[in-house]
Amino acid sequence: MEQRAEYNCELRTANCEPTSRSDVAGCFPRIDLLRIACFLAAVMIVATLGLMLYEILSKAWPAINTFGWRFIIRSEWQPNRDLYGVFPMVIGTLTSSLIALLLALPLGLAIAIFLSENFLPSSVRNAMRFIIDLLAAIPSVVYGLWGIFVIVPLIQKYGDMISHHWGSIPIFKGPAYGNSLLAASLVLTLMVLPTITSISRAALVAVPMVLREGSYALGATRWETIFHVLLPCAAQGIVAAAILGFGRAMGETMAVAMLIGNSQRWTLSLFSPSNTLSALLANQFAEADGLQINALMYAALLLIVMTLVINLVGELVLKKTQKSFGSH
């Protein structure tokens, strides 16, 4: 009965609102100008994206005509003979991002669990959350420098030891150059950690309190509640976090370009130099001319399509997550 009374009340206020709103609009006719300005700004963003795609596509067109889809599966990149193929870079992009994801996901998830449950007083939790979000604010080039001064020497120091013992396994094949797939992947791990942590944390926090209480009331411990109820509930959000983290790693340029070694050959070894699409663009564009520019544009187009698809999938999963929480 109480609910119905409130509902009527709402209806009544809703009915009188339109008159009061038009009064306000009458007093401030310029509000419409503001609306037009905002609309134009929004249109401009969409138009910019469209123009960008058009520009890249038109610059890439000669290369697309020359190499066709084989561009993706060919392994030579020889500007002096005008032969281009980006297979090693596609593989390098995917593997470096995948390694980063595999390392960052467990770490990020552990942090997210720790920060979403009340293990710590909320002031400490908020401080830690802030610091992790700050990781995302560090410029890419600083990560690159840190990689050069810390990660690369470490790999040079221990990489040869590992490849000496386990070199028969393809991924540990030496010699261990410092600038390598591994160096880029490790720095990428750190760079995607904030993305993965904050999205997973949000998914865990969004699990309704009644589910936590339901589990505790049945005599579950905190970890039982986390593993049996919270993680399954947040699974979609965590998947979205992983996908968006992967997307971020694929597009990452500066730090990777500084660390990956820019080798145009593809290898399975973690210790060998490799290349990614973004690093290729960053390293070659300044000195490119002729068909090389078109080939680089083709590579850029490929990178855009890859990251767009990954981000789209991630956003869709995230949307679906939010919907499913809305329903109960």
């Binding site: 589910l211 209480e213 339901g214 009331a217 049996h228 399954p232 509930c233 109960h328």
Partner: peptide
Amino acid sequence: MVFQKSNPFP
């Protein structure tokens, strides 16, 4: 314990 809002686990 039974709650105000049903809380089935997923």
